[in-house]
Amino acid sequence: MATLAQAPASDSTEEPVRTEAPRGRWRRHLPPYVAISPYYILFALFGAFPVFFSFYLSFHDWDGIGSMKFVGLRQYYWLLHDSVFWHSIVNTFEIWFMSTVPMLFLALVLAFLLHSQVRYSAAWRVAYFIPNVTSMVAMTIVFGSVFAQAGLANSLLKAVGVDGIGWLTSSLGIKSAISLMVIWRWVGYNALIFLAGLQAIPNELFEAARVDGASSRQVLFRVVVPQLRPVILFAIITSTIGGLQIFTESQVLFYSDDPGTAGGPGQEGMTIVLYLWQKSFNDLQFGYGAAMGWILFALIAVFAVINWRLVSGGDRDDRRGIPLLRKGGRNGR
């Protein structure tokens, strides 16, 4: 037992009065803790520290280099009186709603189709997932051409006899364009999540439905959707967390290196995170940006609580979830 003999030498400086037994136990448990420590060390450095630092920062005025000035709750005060910030919250929720609702519906339909017997199903799955791993910046540049005044989207509209839309020059156009990009990127990802959920549904249910003469539509809405409820809730909450942090689409679409065009005309494409980024890294008001980050955290936390109540309520009463969900959606807007 050479290890025990050496132990007092190394530990004695810290806690000299401790008895032998707990120290031995601690030493016995040390190796597993050491083994998993790299994760915690990295998390402490790059996860926990920035979180606490940003909280500290949100009570200060700091341009990133010079000395920090303590300003108390002033950043929060300015933020709550900042019309652009409120506008960005409204924009974010509008874009979130316009993208998430159609996206989850589309994903469900896609998953249902992929689950049925189609040829080359693996190839289809890969194809739907590819947008999710495409570089967002490259993709946004392509979409910039699609939504240009003389771009692909307006050409298509003209081909079917509809007047072109100011995709990047009107409130509805800007939000639709960003929502379409979000849908394009995330529909395949959510379809795969739904597909995994579908595959977990016992085959007997499908067979029973078929024996009873149910149509595909009836199978989708009467069998699949009720069975998938936990998976759908998971998809909704991840889409919410992602949706509240929409940033790149709007940033690249409107060449936000020029602060004068950030967020597009009327700042209709200004999202919370884009505003946070603009104030922090263009305007060098890091305290203000940190305060914005914490309000965003609070917003996401509210949604997480709504989700938690939906899930825990769902175990006891299947019907309780839906009205609550509707209420949550209304509150959010």
Binding site: G166, T169, P259, G260, T261, P265, G266, N282, D283
Partner: peptide, 20 residues
């Protein structure tokens, strides 16, 4: 300077693209 002129450039864009 940027803090002060950003709203002005934004409003110029609003005038010409949104007809404000």
């Amino acid at each position: 300077e940027n803090t002060a002129n950003t709203p002005v450039y934004q409003e110029l864009t609003n005038v010409e693209t949104l007809g404000k």
